[in-house]
């Protein structure tokens, strides 16, 4: 029971991160119908920029509560801006010229971009994994139990609290933006029918650019949290995390933002429980198998409706 509770906490934390990345996939897929293969790498770039900012600011675990919070807010902003610049540029360079052309071309272009980002970071930052001493430390003991091997303590770390609360805030803000503002309306109309939206005077290019920027901003936050949570990052983390987040987006129902979050939580929980109860080696197999199973058996996702193809 205690062990289960601990895994639940870990799973929700991880799931929050996947959910934030998944939103970027789901929004882009919803609006231009392509998988932004480079999104996982934008997440990775977000993590690296955070790392560099943290080192540059010189924050450490011992800096005290308020300096750390202040520094983290600053780091989040820097990471968001730079990741947004990346995703905006990617869209302009690799996707926009190919919009409406042959379907495989944007896919090749996107994977090419993903390789460019990975290789750029690998070369610029020497390719080694980058460990960092924990910054957000401490936490709460929720429960403890005497077990045969010693005391088993269920912990909720401050880092986990930070991740879950940040995710909740971002979710609230984003849902408000999408449902309440004219920007959100423009996005939804582009999703429905891009031609019609453009005829009605919506600036499609701008709407798509903003979608990429928003997705990147969330991915950057996820990158920071992922990196702080695991205490290490490298140029290759974007590939796996990206695939898992994409699974989450499909699982939740592609195009649906709450769906992406729910999907993220489910994927995070599955990964954590699989590692805890079955085997760590095959945890990625579990994620991939889950991806295949979802796409095959539930392609419309949890929040989507099944459709009969019109003939």
């Amino acid at each position: 029971m205690e062990y289960f509770l601990q895994q639940l906490i870990n799973g929700i934390t991880l799931g929050s991160i996947y959910g934030l990345i998944a939103i970027g996939y789901t929004m882009v897929y919803g609006i231009i119908g392509m998988i932004n293969f480079a999104h996982g790498d934008v997440f990775m770039v977000g993590g690296f920029v955070s790392l560099i900012a943290i080192v540059a600011l010189g924050v450490t675990g011992g800096s005290g509560f308020f300096p750390i919070i202040l520094a983290l807010v600053l780091v989040v902003f820097i990471a968001m801006i730079i990741a947004s610049a990346y995703n905006w540029t990617i869209e302009r360079v690799a996707y926009r010229p190919l919009r409406g052309s042959f379907r495989l071309a944007p896919l090749i272009s996107a994977i090419g971009m993903s390789i460019v980002l990975q290789e750029f970071v690998r070369i610029a930052q020497d390719g080694r994994p980058k460990p960092l001493q924990p910054i957000v430390t401490g936490g709460y003991e929720i429960m403890s139990r005497e077990a045969a091997q010693g005391e088993f303590i269920v912990r909720l770390s401050n880092m986990q609290i930070f991740i879950i609360i940040t995710t909740l805030i971002l979710m609230a803000v984003f849902t408000a933006v999408i449902t309440r503002t004219s920007l959100g309306r423009a996005q939804r109309s582009c999703e429905q029918d891009m031609k019609m939206a453009s005829l009605l005077g919506i600036d499609i290019n701008r709407t798509i650019s903003i979608t990429f920027i928003m997705g990147a901003a969330l991915a950057a936050v996820a990158g920071l949290m992922f990196f702080l949570y695991y205490g290490v990052t490298d140029f290759y983390v974007g590939f796996l995390a990206g695939i898992k987040a994409f699974t989450a987006a499909v699982l939740g129902g592609i195009g649906s933002i709450p769906g992406a979050m729910i999907g993220g939580l489910i994927i995070g929980l599955i990964e954590v429980f699989w590692s805890a109860y079955f085997s760590i080696e095959y945890k990625d197999v579990a994620a991939f198998a889950m991806l295949a199973a979802v796409l095959i058996f539930l392609p419309q996702g949890i929040l989507g409706k099944p459709e009969i193809e019109k003939v």
Partner: peptide, 9 residues
Amino acid sequence: GAALVLIMR
């Protein structure tokens, strides 16, 4: 990777 992006354009 970069060449592929450009060639696709």
